[in-house]
Design a protein around this nucleic acid. Sequence first.
DNA 1: TCCCCGCATGGTC
DNA 2: CGACCATGCGGGG
Length: 885
Amino acid sequence: MSSPLKICFNKECKELKSERPKKGWPLRNGELAELCDRCGSIYDEGRFCDTFHLNASGWRCCETCGKRVHCGCIISINTFTLLDAGGIECMTCARKNVVPLPNPSWPPLFYQTPLPDRLKDLSVKNWTQLAGSGPVPWRQAPSLFNSPINQPELHQRVPYDVDLSSGIDRLNVAERLSTSSLEKKKIEDFSERLMNGTLKGGSRNTLENGNAGIKCEEQPSSCRNKAQLSSSLKDEPSTPHFGLAVPYACPNEMNGQIGVSGTHLRPALQPPLAKQFHGNVHNGVDSSGEPQIRNGRPRVEARGRNQLLPRYWPRFTDQDLQHISGDSNSVITPLFEKMLSASDAGRIGRLVLPKKCAEAYFPPISQPEGLPLKVQDSKGKEWIFQFRFWPNNNSRMYVLEGVTPCIQNMQLQAGDIVTFSRLEPEGKLVMGFRKASSTPASDQDNEAHKTHMGYSTNGDADLADPSAWAKVDKSGYIATEAIGVKSSSSRKRKNTTLGSKSKRLKLESEDLIELKLTWEEAQGLLRPPPNHVPSVVVIEGYEFEEYEDAPILGKPTIFTTDNMGEKIQWVQCEDCLKWRKLPANALLPSKWTCSDNSGDPERSLCSAAQELKAEQLEDLLAPCNSAASKKLKGAKQEPDNLEALEGLDTLANLAILGEGEALPSSSQATTKHPRHRPGCSCIVCIQPPSGKGPKHKQTCECNVCLTVKRRFQTLMLRREKKQSEKEETSRKKQQPQKLIMPDKSGDDDPVPCSKTENSSPNQKKVVSEGSDDDSNRIKSSASPFKGQIDLNIQPEREEELSPGSDSGNVARLIQDATERYLRQQRLSSSGSNSNSAINQALLGGGTGEQQINNSIILDSSHQDPDEDHPSTLSIKTSASVSATG
DNA sequence: TCCCCGCATGGTC
DNA sequence: CGACCATGCGGGG
């Protein structure tokens, strides 16, 4: 709508518009009023009426609260509702009263119905008059608002006629609702911008300072049941609470970018909204049906969404929302989501935020340093990230810094999706996630739980620390990290262990070691502290025990029933590897040795014979291994090992906590970066989702592939070396563990799969065992591919991913594991023969854990989506597999 | 020397 | 062609 006139559409202004005039209210001709920067900014802030129409007619008082609302112009059309009985009601009150129908959004209508230019003029004047007139039957036209489609279009801006100071009240409730503090912040940004340019904005400053605190007093209380605005992000101290409801997310765009282009605002709207919305906004949470939500938030969001690229549209499901909101009355407003890039998930700890999203939903920041931002995860943990930006090409690149701990906690990897939403009443930012594998519909929360449940988050020693673990898992626990402080609890752990590189290490280590466990198995690794009675939580059909205090990670054992029908558990001595029988209720230390077998003096020494025969043990362990063996087999079958390898890294990234869901083809889509197209060989895209799209070819020489190959080779060499050593000492069966080169894997896989199925028990053991030394041993990450697996496990992973990253930790872990394994082997060979069988079984023959890992890795199977483990967690065990050593 | 921060670069849309 | 953003890179601590 480039109007011929170069002056601001606001008659009371008459300033020249910039080349890229700011967009104002919708005109009847379907265009938007073009405003000068100053007016545009004011409009964006919802203060237009307060600024220009203060003395105009049309100001009326809300019948309910008495607030002044300008009803005389189109600009404020959405800020009030006409009462059937006459008079008007501010949106806030209207919402309270449940009659949330906003004024008919004529704009939308008109929007689409072009009118003669002459009508443009009507916009202000006529409307003004209109407002002045009594109640209009607007309510009858509510549908407009409600319709998702329209919503987007509607401009929420209109609603804000509030001025920062007084006007706030007037903000549309809906708007407010919709707008979160974040948005408010945005507004602030605007203000900033404005300040720079035109605005007078004192208020803004305040806001930015964080004091802004302007909150809509009204909103919360009255308005919605659940859905209230989050008036403020209370999270951050720094975060100002704006009273202003930012119109919709758009302000940013409008503001910031607006100057540049006002166009996108409108245009984008439609399509997306409808889709996304329904799922999100209206989900159960809001089911309350508050119109508000619809009107307000949804819109806001909708708008925001509209303006956002589709890839950032939130796809929350109702369940997701509910989970996030929990039982609280809070309403969750989905804001946006983003697939984690390799760098986002990397150790750098920076999460690049889509610019528009950042500007629309996060507090406005004028300084590159940004603000600390509190974000709550779906479990209620609070994280503090530094929300900041970097100047970039005359623009800004927004990032959240210090996200590593959070990401790790959530066990997220590249390809996974993080979601941001706002908890309305509180205005808190909530960060959820979806594993790449998971379906959009999947419940985040559940996933989260699963994730957490299944494994300890860290593979690191950290995990070893029960308390740490507890922290992680405990919903109550708040892992508050100082923004600047990168060390989150998790990090600290790592740091302590690993040192400065901890971050990286952590990630890698975690990634490296993955075991897949079934939920039951996973839980089996957890033991309640003595005297603690767990509460059982059922998540997605799986029962988990929840303890007030952190669960104790116990040595993995095998539970069974003895001849007498009594429940018992078998545990393997760390030293001699013999299996000992213990009461089912025995609580074992992570490192259990025969000497701990006080209950059975006869077998409290390693020298004592093993009660269990090898075959029996095998039978015992078999079940555990089956999954692994399957995987291995699958891997072997995989023709293109290389591909598998290549994909491994990616897969690893994708690894998800064991969600049962299959990732299949559908998941693939999610795993890919929206921007990437089939054939893209980026880290994210390489994932081999069921072999769809062209992935890296064997001949591919991209960085990723080269890196993978290189690492793989390195690893192989290392292993071979060790193996050779080991072979000498121990009786080795066949070729040493060939590391699972992808290629090789196909053939003879080192892994003893063939027979090993049974042996696989190792994995289990390993998992549990890892506890001691390997901090990492357990990594619980769910792989997107449930069944698949473990590509993550690839040994390569050690070195894994980013070339830049140092895989040292991983390598270490692996080495450790290898060493242990070797030790075991030696022990077994030299020591009691009885054990040897077991060991072999466990270890899968001479090759031992490595093989397992390798095999797993090989599993290109991941490509097959989820085949088997619907419910299995893919726990990545650290190298520790052989752990016992 | 290593790591991190901030900026720059380049690919993609 | 410009904007966006993922990643790389260099300098400083």
